[in-house]
Amino acid sequence: MAATSPYLTLHNGVRMPALGLGVYQSSPEETVRAVSSAVAAGYRLVDTAAAYGNERQVGEGIRRSGVDRDEVFVTTKLWIGDYGQDAALRAFDLSLRKLGLDHVDLYLLHWPVPGDFDATVAAWRSVGKLLAEGRARAIGVCNHNPAHLRELIDRTGLVPAVNQVELHPHFNQRELRAANAAHGIITQSWSPLGGVKVYWPSDPDHIDSPLRTPAILDLAARHSRTPAQVILRWHLQHGLSPIPKSVRESRIAENAAIFDFSLTTDEMAAIDALDTGSRAGLDPELVDTAMFPQQVGE
């Protein structure tokens, strides 16, 4: 890395690296090398999930990196098939065994389940117990809109430290970011480069990637940077935590070389103006166990 990632302080005082490596859609075979390369290169946050099927490989990659475990911020997530009080605790234990760790730094609910929000609330209460026991240093959610956040907080008194959501220049989630900030919640960006628009295109014949947007290409040329570096810099300057996915060592290093330049106010505004207001990923209001009936096992 050209420089060390800045840290964001969560509302319970835990410090989280602003830039991390995501491993969604990284195959088990690719994950070990990607994680070990990233950590050895200076990354200090790795984001996985029970549903990704690569928690074991994330743990192995951290061990192979030669970096002390306490220096690496590890995030994993509870899958919706394991929502409910006791099921959540069992699933957490399984994730720890797969990772080969005695605690995680951040544990997230993977989705809200609006059709069975009682189960979401029960899972959140169990996640709160893990926080109280010190088995998770911080807890949070993914893909929760402002109404989900309000209900979760009102019913439990537990405020998430992080809300991880689809966020990129074509879907910048301005209102949700404001709602998160009002609760003291850090916004973390999945698909920060807009990759979701490539692997889940609304029109396969017209891939509308932020990386190909003329305004981004112009800024990249102006700063002698890649489009990805410009977009990741935009995330950081908004106080966001981007977690780009890659399994290529050169791309992993490239994504981290973003701490020795900055975008001007006008340049930030130009990227903000690319927002379409349309998500490319799943609508959180529609996610339920009928859509995803699979269970996460050994």
Rank of each mutant, 00 (worst) to 15 (best):
A132R: 06
A132Q: 14
E133G: 14
E133F: 15
A136F: 05
R137N: 14
R137V: 06
R137M: 15
R137C: 12
A138L: 02
I139N: 06
G140Y: 08
C142A: 03
C142G: 11
C142N: 08
N143D: 08
N143Q: 08
H144N: 09
N145G: 15
P146E: 15
P146F: 08
P146K: 15
A147R: 15
A147D: 14
A147I: 08
A147G: 12
H148D: 09
H148V: 09
L149D: 10
L149N: 13
R150W: 12
R150K: 10
E151R: 11
E151A: 11
E151L: 07
E151G: 02
E151N: 02
L152F: 00
L152D: 01
I153W: 11
I153L: 13
D154N: 05
R155T: 05
R155M: 01
R155A: 04
R155K: 12
R155C: 03
T156W: 13
T156R: 13
T156N: 12
G157L: 14
G157S: 03
L158T: 04
L158N: 03
P160F: 00
A161G: 04
Q164D: 14
Q164S: 13
V165Q: 04
V165Y: 07
E166A: 01
E166P: 00
E166I: 00
E166G: 01
E166Y: 10
H168W: 05
H168A: 08
P169D: 05
H170D: 04
H170E: 04
H170L: 12
F171W: 14
F171Q: 06
N172L: 01
Q173D: 05
Q173I: 00
R174I: 03
R174N: 10
R174G: 07
E175P: 11
E175N: 13
L176C: 13
L176T: 10
R177H: 01
R177K: 02
R177G: 02
A178S: 15
A178D: 14
A178H: 13
A181W: 09
A181H: 12
A182W: 01
G184R: 09
I185Q: 04
I185F: 03
I186P: 02
I186H: 02
T187V: 15
T187N: 14
T187F: 13
T187R: 15
S189H: 08
S189G: 02
W190T: 04
W190D: 08
S191C: 05
S191R: 03
P192G: 09
L193F: 03
L193M: 03
G194T: 09
G194N: 07
G194A: 10
G195K: 03
G195Q: 03
G195F: 07
V196R: 04
V196I: 13
V196Q: 11
K197H: 12
K197T: 11
K197M: 15
W200V: 08
P201K: 04
S202K: 05
S202W: 09
S202R: 03
P204T: 00
